[in-house]
């Protein structure tokens, strides 16, 4: 599966557009991480626990998108976009969407 956020893939021709695919996940921060983040938050700088958390969650959202594309029989997803929104205090939704396509050389 080739993933890009451009409209074309160099070296390939897009033979069929299969439509929009998407994946999302909502994550809440957990207590252990929150405690460390609270301490770190006093002095500023990067909050590594949260960076990891968001990374994991985004990988999950991307995986769900890929899964959906695979059921459509796609070879690639183009024009991928990521969006993040906080749905409530302490929880955020990560969303990935793109266009599933079939490609040929």
């Amino acid at each position: 599966m080739i993933l890009t956020n451009t409209e074309e893939i160099p070296g390939y021709r897009i033979s069929k557009y299969l439509g929009l695919v998407q994946g999302n996940t909502i994550r809440a921060k957990n207590i252990g991480r929150d405690l460390m983040a609270g301490l770190k938050n006093l002095v500023g700088g990067e909050i590594k626990g949260y960076t990891e958390l968001m990374k994991e969650a985004r990988t999950e959202a991307t995986a769900r998108m890929i899964e959906q594309a695979e059921t459509l029989g796609a070879d690639a997803i183009i024009n991928i976009r990521f969006a993040t929104s906080s749905v409530m205090q302490g929880a955020s939704e990560l969303f990935a969407y793109g266009t599933a396509v079939k490609i040929s050389k």
Partner: peptide
């Protein structure tokens, strides 16, 4: 010649 998706992220807080 070859294309793939790449990403980087960071969570940052301001000090007191």
């Amino acid at each position: 010649e070859k294309a793939w998706l790449c990403q980087g992220s960071v969570v940052i807080g301001a000090d007191h």
